[in-house]
Design a protein around this nucleic acid. Structure first.
Lengths: 248, 248
DNA sequence: GTCGGTACACTGGTCTGACCAGTAGCCTGC
DNA sequence: GCAGGCTACTGGTCAGACCAGTGTACCGAC
């Protein structure tokens, strides 16, 4: 016979639980409103601070949103990946996760996204990629910021073709954190124009591979490009952990 | 010229931000303590309710934990996957992410982990895998629960060989969510003993591939096994999104 | 009749101050 | 040296108050 550790259940936790259950079970649908805090107070039989702490927790989980002054009360939100994004971001920022790990993970995600994109793309998707590539081409002459934005958009289109939100969110987070880690080193990168041209050529290659449904080729191009661009910032002794991915 | 939507910044959000920053930057390490609420109140120059709402948010994100009566104050926690697990689970429950997406993501992660394991494993790692496989073999006669535990342990060893916490945690979370989604269907699986034997044979194959440093082989075995075991629960029309991964 | 403004009744955000149950560590008394 | 109680704290909760802001219903000007 084994006993469970016992922890006192806070009042606000019970409130969270009940509201959460109502949302999950569908009794409360997105767009609907919760009663006002003062009303919830009497319904749950607790003080307003307790209600407020519960609402804060739900708000942090992106389940509800409350705006001051709105007489309709707090709004129930549709499930979104924002919370997933935040918690993954926190994880990726934790120590034990260095540039090497992030880059390795990104090579995995990006490679898989390209593979899937090449094999699952529809004609509409190809049109979208053409548009995104065109935007990048224009971006070259509009400065680095503009180009960079178009670059991100291109990657997002590819991730979206996989139609897997988990892949999209993970890639987005990892890309963001990688950039945060090396942005200072990127600041004074010289020769930006030739860099942009190289990127552009790479993306054109990728698009060609996707168009010809060459999954393995697209995946390899993506991983190789990441390695070529970022491996220099990874300590030399950690680079071997990236190389198996180039051979797959 | 474009304008950003403007939202008033709440006081508790600023508090969250500062404490979060201190944790992320490493100024506050896991195990260390925050000042008491009344102390934070004077440091931030806000009321206690504001402090408490901020702490609730941080607590919901698994960054801190506070126990009543502890004079040392709220404790800073190590980054954990609990919040990630929760948000992914919520997405899965809300139909934005179905079994197909989860399985696809898991095939990507598991495949990559096996690939890396085969190419980066040391002799110690092989010993660890031998031990884990032996435990599974014993588990067969000790009932399904025991076997299942040994199975999880085997996967964890493999994930750990990649030495990438992101991979380890993501895989763990996705595996957990997948199991939660189909546990009711798994409940009345007949023929458990032959199922366990099949699993055992599969793991032996995987181990052989890893031992002979056959990354592509190990990865393919892992992905194929996931597909064979879980694809039946995925609606037939969504299965094509999994298949490109088997060919890579 | 429509339209602009205004008043009002409400909202959430914040603060103050209070009480309680519980904890850690000291401080006895043995 | 140690068991037991004492105490000064902790977080959890409540009550009540004020404020800035919002949506709506009303109302007057046109």
């Amino acid at each position: 016979m084994r006993f469970e550790p016992v922890a006192p259940v806070r009042a606000y936790e019970r409130v969270v639980e009940q509201i959460e259950q109502a949302v999950i079970s569908g009794a409360l649908k997105p767009g609907e409103r919760l009663p006002s805090e003062r009303e919830l107070m009497t319904q749950f039989g607790v003080g307003r601070s307790t209600i407020r702490e519960a609402l804060r927790v739900l708000q942090a989980a992106e389940m509800i949103r409350s705006r001051p002054g709105d007489p309709r009360g707090p709004e129930v939100l549709a499930a979104s990946s924002a919370a997933l994004h935040r918690s993954m971001h926190r994880l990726a920022r934790a120590d034990h996760v260095g540039l090497a790990e992030l880059l390795q993970f990104r090579m995995i995600l990006d490679g898989s996204a390209h593979l899937l994109a090449a094999e699952l793309r529809t004609d509409d998707d190809l049109t979208g990629l053409d548009t995104a590539l065109e935007a990048m081409r224009e971006g070259v002459s509009h400065g680095y910021a503009e180009f960079s934005r178009a670059d991100v958009a291109f990657h997002e289109v590819i991730a979206r073709i996989s139609r897997n939100p988990l892949l999209v969110v993970s890639e987005e987070v990892v890309r963001g954190v990688v950039l945060e880690l090396i942005e200072d080193k990127l600041e004074h990168a010289s020769n930006r124009t030739s860099l942009m041209r190289a990127w552009l050529a790479h993306h054109a290659e990728v698009l060609a591979a996707i168009r010809s449904a060459d999954g393995a080729g697209a995946a390899h191009l993506a991983k190789q490009a990441l390695y070529d661009n970022y491996a220099e910032y990874v300590p030399a002794e950690r680079r071997p952990m990236l190389e198996p991915l180039l051979r797959s």
